[in-house]
Structure formats: C-alpha cells, structure tokens
Nucleic acid binder design. Structure first.
Length: 602
RNA sequence: UGCCCGAUAGUGUAAUGGUAGCACAAGUGACUCUGACUCACUUUGUCUAGGUUCGAGUCCUAGUCGGGCAGCCA
C-alpha cells in the first residue's frame, strides 16, 4: 500500500482553493496577459529545506499544476562564498520528494546543453542521482549561474543606456552614502562617469584587475528615494572565489536583485512569487526589467507571508545553531522542521502538502498552531497505517489459567479503515506484557483500564481479570496475576461480553525487543522562533528512548511502511539506524487522546 | 524616526458593497474489541473612532496594534 494514497475521507471535491495570488493568475489568464503560467522555486543552495520552503513549493508548483503551467526549480546561486553542492543535492532530492505523485509533471525542464551533464551527475550522491534521474538529464534543476554570460551582457546594456555605473566607493562608504530610511542619501562621486569609462572599468572588473570590494557596478536610480532599495543598489561585486557550479570562470558575481528578475525573464516566468520581506525590492525588480527594454512580456513579483509554526524555529540561522551545537542529531533529526527531519520522522509528503495548502496564502503575519500540522499527519496516517500491537513500557502479566508453553492464536485486523481489511495471527501465551499506563493500583475516577479485581479486554484476545499484584521487597511492581476468560475469545460463547476498557498487549515469549524513539516538540514556548534567546525554551524531554516489546510481525518493516501501534500512535522504522535483528522505530505522532489524564500521570 | 505591508472566533482562513462561513482547537452526546476513527450537536469573531451608502468585514479618513526595509546576503 502506498503511503501517498490520499485519506479516504479527504475532501475530494473541495471548492477550488483560492487566494489573492491565484485570483491574479486567473485574471492574467483570462485577459491573455499570459498564455501559460510559469512560476519558479528559487532556493539558494546554502542550507536545508524546511516547512517554510514547503509552503513556497506548494504555492509555486500548485499554481503551475492547477493552470496547466510549469514551475522551475532554480538554484539562486549568485554568492559562491556561501553555497555548496551538498545543498544543491539535498534540496533537489527534497523538492522531488515533496512533489512526487502530485506536481512532478509540471516541473520545468532545463534546456539541453546549458551546462555539461557530466559535471553535475558524476560523483554525486545516490539520492541526487536518483532524484534527477541519470537517464534524463533534462530533469536537472536550473541554475542562475548558468545565466552569468547573459547577465553580464545585460549589465553592459544598462551601462550603455546610462543606467548603471562603476563605483569606487568602499563597502563602508557605500553604506554611509546610502543615508538612512528617514534621511536621503547622497550621490556617489563616481556616479557621473562616462559610458566609455564605465564600460572599460566593468570589463576590467571582470578581467580580475581589482581586488574584492575595490569597485562595484551600481544602478543609477535615486539616492533620495524613500525606498532605500532604490538608492543606486549594486548590480555586481568583485569576489575572487570559485563557484560550486560554474567553476573559476568569474571573479565578479551579480547580486540577487539583478540576477533574480533577469533569470525570471530568461526562463519565461510569468509570476515570481516570494515572501513579504521582498516587497521593498519589487520596485527594483520592475525598474531593472523595464530599463532593459526587453521584447517579451515581463514577469511580475507577488509576495505572501512566510509560514510560522508554533513551538519550533524556522530560520536557517537558528536551525544551523541546533545542528552545530549538537542539540539535535543533525539536519535530519526527526525533531527538526526540515523536510529531511520530517521525512525521517515518518511524516508523508502528502501530509505536509495537505497541511501547507490548508493554511492558505495571505500577506498576514500569522502563527499557525502545531495542532494543524498534527491533524494533517494523523489524517493521512489513519488511512494508510498498518495496525500493530506494541508495548512501550512493559509490565508483566501472568495469565494463571493458561499453561506455560501453550499458544492460543488470535486474529488481528491490519487496518480497519480498509474496505476489505486483512488480518494476521497473534499468539496469546501465559506470560504477556501490558502497558504500564494501563494498570493502576489506586485508579483515578473513570479509569477504564486494569485495576485490582477489575476486568479489561486484551485486544483481539479475551477479557482478563486482575487477581493479584506481586511486588518485590522494595515495593516495586513485579507482575500481575490474572485469569483469562477464554469464553470471550473470538468464536467463544461470550465473545460479545462487554467491558469498559480494551488494552493492547504482546506475548512475553512471542514478541521482539526494539528501540523506540519518542519525540515531542523541540520547544516549550509557542513563539520560541521569535526570540533571540530561543534556546532557553528548549524542551528537555523532546526525545525519550525506550526499549519496547513488539509483536513479531514488526521484525521486518520497510522504511516507507507506516504503522500504528494501537492506542499509542503512528510509527515508522528509522531509515538510518534500523538494522535487521535490531529494529529502531520513530514515533511520528501520538494518537489523539481526549481522556483527561489524572494529575501526576505521564 | 522615513517608507511599505497588514488586522475577521483561542488559532488559521473564506465572504470581491447585500444572510459573517469553513478547518483546527475546545465542549457535549452517540458509536466503539484503539478513551483512536466516524457521526451529531454546542461555545466563541469583523482592532478603535468617524465618514460615504438604502445597506460596510469589504470603500474613504484618522488612530491603535503587529510586521517588513537602511548587506558588496538571498
């Protein structure tokens, strides 16, 4: 069964998702401003993708999918000192993972020969090769760095139009000349160089004649603009650094504002969607493209609010801190909001999409509650996960009326959500384990589980009655001695006898031991991400490792298989640490628990 | 402090001048060999003050509150 199968109760024909961006897109199609919608997802390869990126991906690819358009994965790799192929590889794989089975057919294709295939494929990690498909070099992502020649030509064109100049101000002086938001800047002394001189100097910048920071290429807009991004922003800076994708060909590199709009144009992007912090850049985006007098229709930028999730941090800087300070095990730690972490935790890509799409698209600075994500995950998993019995914190129970060595077979349902559920066999034996939480010597009110003298049903097996509590000298619980009412087994005369509680269990002898990792939210504060000192809100109990007892069928589980440990939650095998004979499971999420726990209970 | 963006139940999001809906959360009940799932029901909302209009969540003005912008980062 595929983990990507949509939940049976999914709103299949829900009204078309709409928002202000989709409205604009629909209008542009209606008025024929665009024949086809082209979007792009443009990460810089300097970190791992997280839930915030998932939102952008769902918007960019989603709109392309809904309109029969396409969406390019393009690496915005204009700053070689911060970037690396490690990130190109992981981001490519993560994007493909997130859109697989959903929008993979609208991903843009890279023109043949735009860069040597061998350079990008050979020697790359398996997951990257698998993601891009070695047999199909056209499925490779786009790179802004592949446009460096064209970008350079456009910069020259701007100089020739008198709209750009080479400036000799140092970075510090450039800063001073820019002024402040409430105070106009002043013109650079180099602002009025002749076109010939600018052309000559820019060519020499490219030729490597000047050291880093000695000169820059700037637009000539307005040093007094109330929008500071219009105060002659830089187009090119000098960086004597090799580039991870195009090698050592360049010593000057374009800046985001120049490279991004031009790359969008070159790729035929119609709608360039980004987050609200780029709102002040939009005027510059438009200015550059309009100044170039380009023949084709220009792309337009629209902005939406970034995703903020409670009880986690989303900024790259904070995430990297968690990794570097070993607060988590790595970028793929199952507690991380990275796509790698979520995947390792067992969250299906479809659940992430469902969640992100459900939060909508607005420009409002919203904080989404973690329960919305959790609900989306449970909804996917409830439909697809195999039901299994596992005991996380075992307490031994001796069924005194079952002889040692005897095995009574029970039939258990694999997934009650299936139309035609299949079953498997379970072994009921004299010694079994039940969950520590499912027994209370002095039960709180409305306790449906096992208590002295009380009865409870062992799921799929029979009703048992607690006769005796055995403790050691220190008063610690050793075992429970119970009698099994075998007439309440399937096929028995009293199968239908009701008791208030049904609990999970495993045979003590017919079960296996496994490491199970229980995860909780990383932070104890909903807005931990908003605070500089976010680490003070770390949850010390975000990871708990237990040695659990599992029913034998859990000995070999495929990494992609999701299982529900009945009454406990959804689990999957840890793709890294699980080895045959020594299983390791991750808890993706607990089941919803509406029973008010008594005070002091864990 | 200059410019820009925003504000609808606890949270998120619809309503495009005409009955304020939906989801999550919370609560009540039904069902139950998962205190899950499912089902039914319930509570809770248009930031404030003016204005335009037959009619304003929606348009206008002012205020309040929240967010963004002053990298040779993206």
């Amino acid at each position: 069964m595929s983990a990507e199968k949509p939940a049976t109760n999914a709103p299949s024909a829900s009204p078309a998702q709409t928002d202000f961006i989709r409205d604009i897109v629909a209008q542009d199609l209606a008025t024929k401003r665009c024949a086809q919608i082209v979007t792009r997802f443009p990460p810089e390869p300097n970190g791992y993708l997280h839930l915030g990126h998932a939102k952008a991906i769902c918007i960019d690819f989603g709109i392309a999918l809904e309109t029969g358009g396409r969406c390019n994965l393009r690496f915005d790799d204009t700053n070689p000192v911060k970037e690396d192929v490690e990130y190109v590889d992981s981001i490519t794989a993560d994007v493909k993972w997130l859109i697989a089975g959903w929008a993979d057919r609208v991903i843009g294709f890279k023109p043949k020969g735009s860069h040597p295939v061998a350079q990008t494929i050979a020697g790359r990690p398996d997951f990257y090769r698998a993601a891009v498909g070695e047999s199909d070099p056209n499925s490779e992502p786009f790179f802004t760095s592949d446009y460096f020649d064209q970008l350079y030509a456009y910069a020259v064109a701007l100089i020739k139009k008198g709209k750009a100049y080479v400036c000799d101000l140092s970075p510090e002086d450039t800063d001073k000349y820019r002024g402040a938001p409430d105070q106009a800047g002043k013109d650079s002394p180099w602002r009025n160089r002749s076109i010939e001189e600018n052309l000559d100097l820019f060519a020499r910048m490219r030729a490597g004649e000047f050291p880093n920071g000695a000169r820059s290429l700037r637009t000539k807009i307005d040093m007094a603009s109330p929008n500071v991004w219009l105060r002659d922003p830089l187009l090119y800076r000098i960086r004597h650094t090799a580039h991870h994708h195009v090698g050592a060909k360049w010593v000057i590199y374009p800046l985001y504002d120049f490279a991004h709009c031009v790359s969008d144009y070159l790729e035929g992007v119609t709608h360039s969607l980004c987050t609200v912090e780029y709102i002040p850049h939009r005027a510059l985006y438009d200015w550059i493209l309009e100044s170039l007098d380009l023949p084709r229709v220009l792309p337009r930028q629209y902005e939406f609010a970034p995703l903020k999730l409670g009880y986690t941090v989303m900024s790259k800087r904070k995430l990297i801190q968690l990794v570097q300070e070993k607060i988590v095990m790595g970028w793929d730690d199952p507690r991380m909001p990275t796509l790698r972490g979520l995947a390792r935790r067992g969250v299906p890509a479809s659940a992430i999409r469902r969640f992100v799409i459900g939060t909508g698209v607005t420009r409002f600075d919203a904080l989404t509650d973690i329960s919305v994500l959790e609900h989306a995950v449970r909804e996917e998993l409830n439909a697809t996960a195999l039901r299994r019995l596992a005991v996380l914190r075992p307490v031994k129970v001796v069924l005194t009326n079952i002889p040692a060595g005897e095995i009574l077979e029970c039939e258990a349902t694999n997934n009650p959500q299936d139309e035609n559920p299949t079953t498997r066999k379970l072994a009921l034996t004299r010694d079994v384990f039940i969950e520590a939480d499912d027994f209370a010597e002095t039960p709180p009110p409305k306790y449906f589980r096992l208590k002295p003298g009380g009865e409870v049903r062992l799921k799929y097996a029979c009703i048992i009655k607690c006769d005796e509590i055995v403790k050691d000298a220190t008063g610690a619980l050793v075992e429970l001695r119970c009698t099994a009412d075998l007439t309440t087994r399937a096929g028995g005369p009293n199968v239908d006898r009701k008791v208030k509680g049904t609990i999970h269990w495993v045979s003590a002898t017919e079960s296996i031991a496994a490491e199970v990792r229980l995860y909780d939210r990383l932070f104890t504060h909903p807005e931990a991400g908003a605070e500089e000192d976010f680490k003070q809100h770390l949850n010390p109990h975000s990871l708990e490792v237990v040695t659990a007892r599992l029913e034998p069928s859990l000995a070999q589980v495929a990494p992609a298989q999701r299982v529900q440990f009945e009454r406990l939650g959804y689990f999957s095998v840890d793709p890294k640490d699980n080895v045959p004979g020594k299983p390791v499971f991750n808890r993706t999420i607990t089941l919803k628990d509406t029973w008010a726990k008594p005070p002091g209970a864990k």
